[in-house]
Design a protein around this nucleic acid. Structure first.
Lengths: 188, 188
DNA sequence: GTCTATAGGCAGATAGAC
DNA sequence: GTCTATCTGCCTATAGAC
C-alpha cells in the first residue's frame, strides 16, 4: 500500500519546508509523519542537505511540466490565465508559500547545491513568463508598458511576495488582489 | 566605547536573520560577532524568542519613523520617491532581504508573539502605502487603475518578492526593474 | 554585566542486526 | 529497507563566582 517511502519522505519534507522553512525541520519530524524511524530516512537520502536538494529538484521539474501544460492552452490570454490559476489555489491550500520563496529567506544558511537549485528555479520561471509576455504582446493579446523582462520580474516578484504576506496576515484577499491587478495590468 | 551591548546584540541578530533566517542562528554566532560569551546574551534577552521579538519591534518602529520622515517630503510624488529609494539601496547593501520577509518564510516555526509582530508590520506598511496612493490619486499626482488597496498590495508584494528573488539570483537588476516598473505604473 | 561551568535535550549521522 | 542502539556535537538556558 505504500511502496514509495522515498516519495512520502519528499512529500513530507516539502510540506514542512513550505510551512516552517528548512532549518526548523528535524528528521524526527519527518519520521513521525511518515511512520518510520528517523534512521531509515538516511537509507533514502544520505544527508538532510541531499534531501533538501532532491525536494527542490522535484519541485522544479513539476512546475516546468505545469508551464508546458499551460502552454497547450491555446491563446496567450488563456495561457496567462492557466499560469495564474494555481496561485489562486494557494488561498484555499492552507498557509503555504512557494517552496523556493521559503528557502530564499534562508539562502545564506544553505549549501551551494541547494542555492544553485533555487537560483535556477527563479531564473527559469521568470524566463518563461518573459517569453509569454513578449509573444502575447507581439500577438496583440497582451498590452503593457516597458520591456517584457521588467514586467515579468514585476509580476513574478509580486506573486512570490503575495504568498509571503498573505500567510503572515492570514488574508486570502492579498493574493486575489495581486492576481486581479496583474491580470488587469496585462490585459490592458 | 561600547556602552550599548544590548544594541549590538540587536544589530547582530537582525543582520543574521536577514541573511540566514531565524532558525539557523545560534547564540554562539551572536556572541562571536559581538565579542562576548553566549551566556551574557541571556542577561539582556532572556530567551532567543524574546530577542527575536525585540528585533522585530525595533525594526517596525524604525520603519514607521522612516515613513513619517518620507511624508515630510512635500508632494505625493516626492513621498513616493522617498519611499522607494531605500529599496534601491538594498542593491548595494549585500544580499539582505526585509527582516519580516525572511521571517515570513519560517512563520509556522515561530512563537505567537513574533508572528503577531510580523503580521502587524505587513499590515501597517501596506496601510501606509494605500493611503499614499489614495491621496496621491485624489491630488492628481498619481494615476493607476483599480483600488488604492489592490495597487498597494501589488506594489508592496512586488518589493518584498524582488528582495527575495534578487538574493537568490545575485542580480541587482531585479530590484531596479521592479522599482522602475512600479514608478511607471503609478506616475502613469 | 560578564564570566566559567554545566545541565539537559535534541540534532544529524553511523553501525550492524534482522 | 527498516530497525535498535549509539556516537558526537551543538543547542538554549541556568547557576553562581567575580
Amino acid at each position: 500500500m505504500k511502496p514509495d517511502t522515498a516519495g512520502e519522505i519528499l512529500d513530507t519534507m516539502q510540506e514542512l519546508i513550505q510551512a516552517r522553512g528548512f532549518n526548523a525541520i528535524s528528521y524526527q519530524d519527518i519520521a513521525d509523519r511518515v511512520g518510520i524511524r528517523k534512521a531509515s530516512i538516511h537509507y533514502h537520502f544520505p544527508t538532510k542537505f541531499a534531501l533538501g536538494a532532491a525536494v527542490i529538484g522535484r519541485y522544479r521539474a513539476r512546475l516546468l511540466e505545469a508551464l508546458a501544460a499551460a502552454e497547450a492552452g491555446g491563446s496567450h490570454r488563456a495561457v496567462l490565465a492557466a499560469y495564474l490559476e494555481p496561485f489562486a489555489a494557494f488561498v484555499e491550500g492552507g498557509d503555504k508559500v512557494c517552496l523556493c520563496g521559503a528557502l530564499a529567506g534562508e539562502f545564506a544558511a544553505l549549501p551551494k547545491p541547494m542555492q544553485e537549485q533555487i537560483t535556477q528555479f527563479f531564473t527559469e520561471q521568470q524566463a518563461w513568463l518573459e517569453q509569454l509576455l513578449e509573444r502575447g504582446r507581439a500577438a496583440g493579446e497582451l498590452r503593457f508598458a516597458g520591456s517584457p523582462r521588467s514586467m515579468a520580474r514585476l509580476c513574478f516578484s509580486a506573486l512570490q511576495g503575495a504568498l509571503l504576506v498573505r500567510r503572515a496576515q492570514g488574508d486570502g484577499q492579498q493574493i486575489r488582489d495581486v492576481i486581479g491587478t496583474i491580470r488587469a495590468l496585462l490585459l490592458g
